[in-house]
């Protein structure tokens, strides 16, 4: 048995999750707490990949990163580097498709506590940076963690957009979902079943762990606890 799809899937999903985690928190923090003209449009664009078919996202990515694409042609010209048909393409596909999940979780998490808690810290002389790391981040953490687990699970399962931008190249861009599809297509039901079991286990255990952690920790900060 060749385990490359598992390692490749974990690698791609992990890197995508780290990228989504950082950008998601940053954007959610900036956009959710401020009002500006066009905010609704910006948020709709961010959430769009959630409702579009992954093939449309893949098409869009090809349009941007393809040989003749806006970004793709520049990368080729400046660095002689091509994203299409590489695992980096798969990372980009996973980032775009899973980003809305993180963004939604993070913006809800940052609005889930009383704004005056942050304000109190500001009046005590704390810089915005200190307020973020000592107040906002720890208070939003349960929501951020939920978003991160969902992002990872979604990135792990990404198929359509990945196939369009990274293609199916065994040992190079062959993630578990792609391995399943092409195993079935070539009639190798045994391999397909194996990968199905692996990915179900991975998804199941991440969600189980998240639920367990949430039940154990989320009440720690909550005021509701006090009123019982």
């Amino acid at each position: 048995m060749n385990y490359t799809p598992l390692l490749l899937s974990l690698k791609i999903a992990s890197i995508a999750t780290i990228i989504v985690f950082i950008i998601g928190i940053f954007l959610a923090r900036i956009i959710a707490r401020n009002s500006f003209p066009g905010k609704n449009v910006v948020e709709s664009i961010i959430l769009l990949p959630m409702v579009l078919p992954p093939t449309v996202v893949g098409f869009g990515l090809l349009y941007l990163f393809g040989k003749n694409g806006i970004i793709g042609s520049l990368l080729l010209e400046w660095f002689n580097f091509q994203i299409v048909f590489t695992w980096i393409g798969a990372v980009i596909a996973s980032v775009v498709v899973s980003f809305p999940l993180m963004y939604q979780s993070a913006s809800a998490a940052f609005q889930n506590f009383d704004l005056n808690i942050e304000n109190a810290a500001l009046t005590m002389g704390a810089s915005k940076w200190k307020v973020f790391w000592t107040i906002s981040f720890p208070l939003a953490f349960p929501g951020l963690l939920a978003g991160t687990v969902l992002t990872f699970a979604r990135a792990l399962g990404e198929f359509g957009a990945t196939l369009m931008i990274a293609g199916y190249i065994p040992n190079k861009t062959e993630t578990i979902p792609l391995a399943i599809y092409f195993a079935v297509e070539s009639g190798n039901m045994e391999a397909a079943t194996f990968w199905v079991i692996i990915i179900v286990l991975l998804g199941f255990s991440s969600i189980m762990w998240l639920n367990w952690w949430t039940k154990r920790n989320i009440l720690r900060f909550s005021e509701i606890n006090n009123k019982r």
Binding site: F113, D114, I117, N119, A120, T123, G125, P138, L139, F221
Partner: peptide, 19 residues
């Protein structure tokens, strides 16, 4: 800026840091 004003503020719901 707020941080430099050195003004104590007791909020209506106290806004203690719950964590």
């Amino acid at each position: 800026p707020i941080q430099k004003r050195n003004i104590g503020y007791l909020f209506q719901d106290y806004a203690l840091f719950p964590h």
